[in-house]
Computed example of a mutant assay.
Amino acid sequence: MAIEYIEGDLIASGEEVVVHGCNTRGGFDTGFAGVVKKRHPAALDAYMEYHRNGGLVLGSVIWAYDGRLIGNALTQPTYGRAGKHISYAAVEACMQSIDDAARNGVPGTPFSGGFTRVSMPLIGADRGGGDWNEIERIVETTLKSVKTVVYVLPGHRPSADALSSRPRR
């Protein structure tokens, strides 16, 4: 399903289901995760509980709810300010898990019956060092049961307009 691009602040938006990329090393302090940590502490708590119990498995999604459903998608085995940390295979596995949750629900949350829309930043393409063209292809071919909305911060390159207007493969 084609991605809709919106220029704006995802966390300040009214989006009910938000997914973002995380690493499997226990780092949840910078980038989009750092913003999630401040605004949605339940997402950090869930992530850290899995970390303490050895459950940060690459390619899985840790769900948390505290006013909105947050999916901590474990797309990176490592992290850092430079280099490629993203695993495209993990992105695909996470997107499949998100598609399954959209169809079948997330137990123990108001979304136990599923959801029809999911939003995310340019997951894996900034701090993760990934190629957005490849990530976009994975997202569009894997998330078939849900409308996908990607938020791009104002002034970020590429802009939401540039991403929306370019030819698709």
Results as ranks from 00 to 15, higher is better:
Leu153Asn: 13
Tyr88Ala: 10
Ala101His: 04
Gly130Trp: 04
Cys94Arg: 07
Val149Cys: 04
Pro158Met: 07
Ile123Arg: 01
Gly114Lys: 02
Thr142Gln: 03
Arg81Ala: 09
Gly113Val: 11
Lys144His: 12
Ile123Asp: 09
Ile98Asp: 11
Val139Glu: 02
Gln76Phe: 05
Val106Lys: 01
Tyr79Met: 14
Val152Arg: 01
Gly128Pro: 07
Arg127Gln: 13
Phe111His: 10
Ala90Phe: 11
Val152Asn: 00
Ser119Ala: 10
Gly124Val: 06
Glu134Cys: 08
Ile135Arg: 10
Pro158Leu: 13
His156Asp: 03
Gln96Asp: 01
Pro77Gln: 12
Glu92Tyr: 14
Gly83Cys: 14
Arg81Gly: 09
Glu136Leu: 03
Arg117Phe: 05
Ser97Ala: 09
Pro158Ile: 03
Ser112Val: 10
Asn104Ala: 03
Tyr88Pro: 11
Pro107Leu: 06
Ala73Ser: 07
Leu74Pro: 15
Ile138Tyr: 04
Val150Pro: 02
Ala101Asp: 06
Ile98Gly: 06
Ser112Arg: 09
Lys147Ala: 12
Val146Pro: 01
Leu143Pro: 02
Arg117Tyr: 13
Gln76Val: 06
Asp131Leu: 05
Glu136Trp: 07
Arg81Tyr: 05
Ile135Ser: 07
Gly114Arg: 01
Lys84Pro: 10
Thr142Met: 03
Leu122Gln: 00
Pro107Gln: 05
Ala102Gln: 07
Lys144Trp: 00
Glu92Trp: 09
Gly80Val: 14
His85Tyr: 06
Asn133Ala: 12
Tyr79Val: 13
Ile86Val: 15
Leu74Asn: 10
Arg117Ala: 08
Asp126His: 14
Val146Asp: 03
Asn104Phe: 05
Gly105Asp: 05
Glu134Gln: 04
Gly124Arg: 01
Leu153Ser: 06
Lys144Pro: 05
Asn104Lys: 10
Tyr151Ile: 02
